[in-house]
Nucleic acid binder design. Structure first.
Lengths: 212, 212
DNA sequence: ACCTGAACACCGTTCAAGT
DNA sequence: ACCTGAACACCGTTCAAGT
């Protein structure tokens, strides 16, 4: 469950009738389409409304301002990413740390890659306001999932477990973003992904050794 | 030396008289001030011009549009970061890979931390347009510096050197950004920084072993 | 309960006129 | 060579009026 967003970013009201739900869905879909087709600086409330087949006024019934729309869009997106990571984590309870790390990197990377265009567009869309709250909620949710997985490892993690886990996530999230932002060729992306797994694995192995 | 930016992002003209140089400097300074004091969405051409003590028209003599201004600002900033990293690299030629990695992480991290407020503001300011070109130029410049350093290591790097170097940089750049974006408490930042060094060191050690 | 769209304040950008 | 600022097109947001 995602944390409730800060008040000034939360939707104005929830749809109570079926047509309203459809409207909201159309607005989200339109936002993605405009974002992909025209880019962030051409993402206009009017354009979104037009593409969604509603009037601007309607949009403002659901979102107090444009940023809240982008915020909600990112929230939904991160929700699906978090879900997939959580699933992968649960599936690997009791495995070796090496298997876990590989599963984690793969789940996160693939969730991002599946719709690479959307991923890139959204990375850029969170520009202003408390995207910090959004990212923090996501980070903590994933942190919980990976922590639970790692304590169940057949080969225990040494050292400070919390710190180790936080570091792993910061490195993985950061590296993936860097690779996406630079839009590196697919072959290089695959190489780096593979190296990232090796890096995390050797980090965990080293932590184990230095612990004894 | 930084690569020339794409034409649509490059300044319109260079200052030829002393007062023009001052004007340009005032515009840059004003941009940073407005960015820090008011945030990106209140960064207005009029506001910048006003703070710089010039008219809007003047700004448009030097920059074809607002994004070009932000682009130039980021370019200058990355320039100083790259310089500091290059310096650190040169100073550690011939050292051990462990020392090199530590020096690299420290140099980059400290360059970013010194003016953490500016760093965060600029991370958010590069929203649209070809920031890709900017980041690529920076990445390649640093890549050259670290490559040269690593081949001089007293303990050689094993495996694919190019890939290893690229991975190292993607991980370091990405992790630092993640930590800044989340604005984690200083203590946690320091911890992660330390772990990041350990992680890179164990990665290089593992690469060396698997090579034999 | 939900939707509309004209109206308003503001922002990016231009250009004729100035020194 | 450099600077000015009124003018224009467009965008975010509101609100009285509609179903």
């Amino acid at each position: 469950m995602a944390a409730t967003p800060p008040r000034h970013l939360s939707p104005r009201k929830k749809p109570r009738q079926a047509r309203a739900t459809l409207t909201l869905e159309a607005i989200f879909e339109a936002t993605i389409q405009v974002l992909l087709a025209e880019g962030l600086h051409r993402l206009t409330t009017t354009r979104v409304a037009e593409r969604a087949g509603v009037s601007v006024g309607t949009m403002y019934q659901y979102f107090p301002h444009k940023q809240a729309l982008l915020y909600a869009l990112n929230e939904r997106y991160l929700d699906t990413v978090a879900e997939r990571v959580e699933k992968a984590c649960i599936e690997h309870h009791g495995a070796s740390t090496a298997e876990m790390v590989e599963a984690l990197v793969n789940a996160y990377w693939e969730a991002k890659t599946e719709r690479a265009d959307i991923t890139r567009a959204l990375y850029r869309s969170v520009v202003e306001l408390d995207n910090e709250a959004l990212i923090e909620a996501f980070s903590q949710r994933v942190d919980a999932a990976t922590s639970a997985m790692l304590v169940s490892a057949s080969d225990a993690v040494g050292g400070d477990r919390r710190l180790c886990n936080t570091t792993l996530l910061a490195v993985i999230f950061g590296t993936v973003r860097n690779v996406f932002e630079r839009n590196l060729p697919a072959a290089v992306q695959a190489d780096i992904r593979c190296q990232l797994v090796r890096m995390c694995v050797s980090y965990l192995a080293a932590a184990r050794l230095s612990d004894g």
